[in-house]
């Protein structure tokens, strides 16, 4: 309960548009099977390339599939893919980062050089190379992206872990004679994970974009699974006839990426104070006006 309230109060301070976009994305992604008005993969060639109507709110594509349903189902593909990539990348990254942060010295040097190599190559190039070697496929794409993303989270985790290890509260545990396992699992890992998850917000948008990019190139999600990048490719030949089929998935993707980026930025800048809102200021002034002031 306390956690939920803290979470909600943090959200209240974030840009509303970003919170809205991300919330809608996550909601659609999680509840997609119950929200789609039609089966997103049901083809009906007689209904192909239809305009907006009562039965198909956003029309149909060249195979007569309901666009709205496909957009919603694609959100699910994106949420699931993104989560898998982040979970894998963070597990590897946080483990390596915290071990490096805890064990300083040559262990840290060695691990961080590996991370440096990973960071030296652009994420998408790494992903393309992995897919080039292992071939296309859903799991290959997830693994490729996770492989591309873990060095970043390892770097951040190490920075956070080094900072946490130098805090007096960890030092006082060392003086108390706490075992390394206790310090690592009870104090270092939870604190680091909390901080790294915050940074992961900014990464989520980039991962969503990468999934769409790979799918657009035909290297990621394979048809007929609905996916925004995939939908863009499908609709490109009909760009002039029904531009809506290109614009809608494009807009959805843009909204999600911008939403996550704004959220990530807001989280990073959370510590920077902002001026009081007019409403709170008036409330405070009212409080102060009631304070008595004795005559001097």
């Amino acid at each position: 309960m306390k956690f939920l309230r803290a979470f909600l109060s943090t959200l209240a301070g974030m840009p509303k548009v970003a919170v809205g976009a991300v919330a809608i994305f996550l909601f659609l992604g999680i509840f997609a099977p119950w929200l789609t008005p039609h089966d997103p993969n049901a083809q009906d060639l007689l209904q192909a390339n239809q305009d907006m109507s009562i039965s198909h709110w956003l029309g149909t594509d060249h195979l007569g599939r309901d666009t709205l349903s496909r957009l919603i189902a694609a959100a699910r593909t994106s949420v699931v893919g993104m989560s898998l990539v982040l979970i894998l990348a963070l597990s590897v990254g946080v483990t390596i980062g915290t071990i490096a942060g805890y064990r300083r010295g040559w262990v840290e040097e060695g691990l961080m050089r590996i991370v440096d190599v990973g960071l030296a190559m652009p994420s998408l190039i790494v992903a393309l190379a992995v897919i080039g070697i292992f071939g296309t496929g859903y799991w290959n794409m997830i693994l490729a992206l996770a492989l591309a993303w873990w060095p970043g989270s390892a770097r951040i985790s190490r920075a956070v872990a080094v900072n946490v290890m130098n805090r007096p509260h960890i030092e006082s545990l060392r003086v108390l004679g706490a075992s390394p396992l206790r310090i690592y699992f009870k104090h270092l890992l939870p604190t680091t994970l909390g901080a790294v998850l915050v940074y992961a917000t900014a990464d989520a948008g980039a991962v969503a974009l990468a999934i769409a990019t790979l799918s657009f190139l035909g290297l990621g999600i394979q048809p007929p699974t609905p996916e925004w990048g995939q939908m863009l490719v499908d609709a490109l030949p009909y760009l002039e006839a029904s531009p809506r089929q290109v614009i809608l998935p494009g807009l959805a993707l843009t909204a999600v990426v911008i939403g996550f980026n704004l959220l990530g930025e807001a989280v990073a800048l959370n510590r920077v104070p902002t001026p009081l809102s007019a409403k709170i200021l008036r409330k405070r002034q009212l409080t102060a006006a009631l304070w008595t002031r004795e005559a001097a």
Binding site: P168, E171, S172, V175, L176, S179
Partner: peptide, 11 residues
């Protein structure tokens, strides 16, 4: 760790 525990530190 057990021996050194007899020496504590106040920050």
């Amino acid at each position: 760790r057990e021996t050194r525990r007899a020496i504590q530190y106040v920050f």
